[in-house]
């Protein structure tokens, strides 16, 4: 399985929760313990089992372009 990860620009996030709805691995949650500069609870990647595949669906649906998606390089065979 391809491994990936994302970074979230939490100050840009408006807490709309669309990314949490499309994540096929359910590793995105709303960070209810944090308030960002805008006053929203931002999205947070909670992926202790490293399930994220870097599929980028969260980034495609994010209206505020908060998410950058990375994938691990595929090792040469």
């Amino acid at each position: 399985m391809v491994k990936g990860t994302i970074t979230i620009d939490q100050d840009r996030c408006k807490g709309c929760e669309l990314c949490t709805g499309v994540c096929p691995k359910d590793v995105l949650v709303m960070d209810n313990d944090t308030l960002n500069a805008k006053g929203y609870h931002p999205a947070l990647l909670q992926d202790p089992d490293e399930l994220c595949t870097g599929c980028a669906q969260c980034a495609v649906i994010c209206p505020d372009v908060c998410i950058t998606v990375y994938r691990d390089p595929i090792p040469a065979r």
């Binding site: 990936g4 970074t7 980034a59 998606v69 990375y70 390089p73």
Partner: peptide, 9 residues
């Protein structure tokens, strides 16, 4: 993270 491939930015 710098060694990873950016797939969406």
């Amino acid at each position: 993270i710098s060694d990873r491939v950016v797939v969406y930015e």
